[in-house]
C-alpha cells in the first residue's frame, strides 16, 4: 500500500529548502527515501511545486533513473558503452545475465536482483564496469561475474 502520508511528509520536508526548479531534486529525494516514485505521489508533487500532473509525469517518464515501481533488492548496472565493449563487454553481459538469471533491462521475478544497462561510468580504461548496488566494480571477468552473482544472492 502506498504511504501517501509518508510521501507528503517527505515532500513537506523537501519543500523547506525553497529550491528553484526543484522537480528533479525532489524526485531524487523521493526515490532515495522510498526506492521509487509512486504514481500516487505525482499529484502531491504537482501540488507542492504548482505544476500540472502531466508535467510531473512527463518528467518522470523522460528520465531513465526514475522508477515507478519498487526496485529489486539488488541492482547491477552494467555498462554497455563502447569502451566497455572494446574490452569484451558483450560477452560479460551475456555471462552476467546468465549467472543472475535475468535478462538485461529486467528484474528477476523473485525481486532479488535487477540487471540494468548503464551507458558509461567514466571508468573507460578499466572496463567492463558495473555498479553493484552503487559500488563501482571494474575489470569484470568471468570470476568477477560469479562473485557479483554470489553477492547479490545474499
Amino acid at each position: 500500500m502506498t504511504d501517501i502520508a509518508g510521501i507528503q511528509t517527505a515532500i513537506d520536508r523537501f519543500m523547506q529548502s525553497d529550491m528553484r526548479g526543484a522537480l528533479l531534486p525532489l524526485l531524487h529525494a523521493l526515490q532515495e527515501e522510498f526506492g521509487h516514485v509512486d504514481p500516487a505521489a505525482v499529484p502531491l508533487i504537482a501540488d507542492a511545486l504548482n505544476l500540472s500532473r502531466a508535467e510531473v509525469h512527463g518528467v518522470i517518464s523522460f528520465y531513465h533513473d526514475f522508477r515507478t515501481e519498487p526496485p529489486a533488492r539488488h541492482v547491477v548496472k552494467l555498462c554497455r558503452a563502447e569502451s566497455c565493449q572494446s574490452r569484451g563487454g558483450a560477452a560479460i553481459e551475456a555471462q552476467l545475465s546468465h549467472q543472475l538469471g535475468v535478462a538485461m533491462g529486467h528484474s528477476r521475478k523473485d525481486g532479488q536482483v535487477a540487471l540494468e544497462p548503464v551507458y558509461c561510468l567514466g571508468l573507460c580504461a578499466i572496463g567492463p564496469n558495473a555498479l553493484v548496488d552503487d559500488r563501482p566494480v571494474a575489470r569484470i571477468d568471468s570470476a568477477r561475474v560469479v562473485a557479483i552473482a554470489n553477492e547479490v544472492e545474499a
Binding site: 500532473r53 502531466a54 510531473v56 509525469h57 512527463g58 517518464s61 523522460f62
Partner: peptide, 17 residues
C-alpha cells in the same frame, strides 16, 4: 494537461499521468 510520455521513439502524447 498534456505531456509527452517517455522519450525517443517511445515518445507518445499523454494526458496527465
Amino acid at each position: 494537461a498534456l505531456t509527452v510520455d517517455g522519450r525517443g521513439f517511445a515518445s507518445k502524447i499523454a494526458a496527465s499521468q
